[in-house]
Design a protein around this nucleic acid. Structure first.
Lengths: 115, 115
DNA sequence: GCCGTCCATCGTCTATCGCCGATGAACGAT
DNA sequence: ATCGTTCATCGGCGATAGACGATGGACGGC
């Protein structure tokens, strides 16, 4: 997909980017920036693990659309994919999710401590 | 804590219920899903409050672009806007930011209580 | 064999994003 | 009154997101 767009803030150099790597963090937020994906995430967590079809039945979305959303979640590292027969099992990567939460906490902290 | 999951919080109620409305949460994540906006947020926090021009000087972006990013942050409720004479003062809404963090924490928790 | 199911991917469409330059309003200073 | 500065907005452009239907591969069952 798109990697390394926006060298703007990097090339600027004005703020030498003590890296919490806004790119990476932003990318994970982007994966969470769609209501359907949040709902899918919740559903995956509640079911512990489920296949694409199951998600399609749950939500009013075409199979191809659901497949895309799942792919985005997998590529963001928030969901693990495991082929099972001809089914595809998807499961929330709870550690990764906790990691994103930690990133946001760090951002909030840096915003509250001023620096 | 009521962890009966599997609910469709996407109800018809349209109640501005913050923590569970995935649409609202997604919108706030969307505001955070751009590296420039994350950097701007950090800069606002470090400066405690600053005007558009100051942000423009800091980053290698056109003034109109910065203005748009700030508008997005304001509309997401993460940044407060206060017209000050000719300038526009922008400041991080730390409470709102903490709220987003809490939302994500809630999501992570709901995902971890699934099993 | 054949058929049905599950799924990822492709192609296509529209809507929105992200960027910019230009414009004009608002205000302070001269 | 006339600058100079700050800023929000408009219009345009290319790129991307998000949705769908259609296609075809991989399996399991008959």
């Amino acid at each position: 997909m798109t990697e390394s767009v926006l060298e703007t803030d990097r090339a600027a150099g004005a703020l030498p980017n003590r890296n919490s790597d806004s790119h990476a963090v932003a990318a994970q937020f982007a994966a969470l920036s769609h209501p359907a994906r949040i709902e899918i995430l919740k559903h995956l967590a509640a079911s512990n693990s489920c296949c694409c079809r199951e998600v399609v039945d749950r939500f009013d979305l075409a199979q191809s659309t659901v497949s895309q959303h799942l792919k985005i979640l997998v590529e963001a590292g928030l969901v693990r994919f495991e082929p099972d027969r001809q089914r595809s099992r998807y499961a929330v990567d709870r550690l990764a999710l906790a990691d994103v939460s930690a990133s946001l906490n760090a951002l909030v902290n840096s915003c509250c401590s001023g620096r």
